[in-house]
Amino acid sequence: MKIALAQISPVLGNIEKNLKLHLDLIKRATTQKADLIIFPELSLTGYSLRDLAAEIALRPKDSAAFSQLLDASGSIDLVFGFAEDREANPGIIYNSAAYLSRKRCLHLHRKVFLPTSGMFEEGRFFASGREIKSFETNFAKTGLLICRDFLHYCSSYCLFAGGASLIIIISAAPGRGVSKTEGQSFETSEMWELMGQAVSFFSSAVTIYCNRVGIEDGAVFAGGSYVYSPYGQLVIRLPYLEEDFTVLELDLNEITQARRSWPFRRDDRPEVIWRSLERIIRQEDED
């Protein structure tokens, strides 16, 4: 399987320009015979939207931009991010990611964990999604997460328990921390890589993280998109802070091999986890 990682810097609040950027890169990825192209979080809209979120949110069914991307998915699978005005719940805006394939939307993930503290204010402008679900694609059972979702390790566990062997995270993660005098990126980049390595290894899954670059209102997005193998080995890391477009081959056979060596998946006990969680939740209510 060949994937393309589009480490881009979208124009904040301009869907037209961003759609063009998406279509151009989709064309480039198709020319290079990629099977799947992945864009970062809120790639169609930009990240720091604030009140713009509600104004430029798309309804997938009536959006011209969405339908052009559906058309483009005739020749390549694609993952991108956008602000969604949910049809079943109009006026409620989500930070969403779509997986499109063969002119169909295979899955929509709505960001569950909305960072709302410090420099982040997503909970002020978005509603949080209520489901983390694996889904079938032409290549592998896949899971989709958005940025902070991935830092809550229970999200990856849900995908793992749901059978995902390809975990895709789209992100708009600003960098923070420069007190380590060595290194080419902010300290927070290490946090993302730590989780990527751990989740790949302990889920025996390929983890693909696509982060954006560029600067919005002083927030410096760190880039450093990566792929980890099912053995937790770094396959590729894109440059920090710089725009990039990379096509690479993934060996999906490694997933089976890794699961033979390390039977984490075979030995998983979601029913025990479920019962334990239930008890914890009930207990908390009583407290």
């Binding site: 124009v11 609040g13 604030r50 713009l52 919005e216 002083g218």
Partner: peptide, 11 residues
């Protein structure tokens, strides 16, 4: 207060 737009809007 609640008229909140980004500085880098459409840039």
């Amino acid at each position: 207060h609640d008229f909140l737009y980004p500085y880098d809007w459409d840039k």
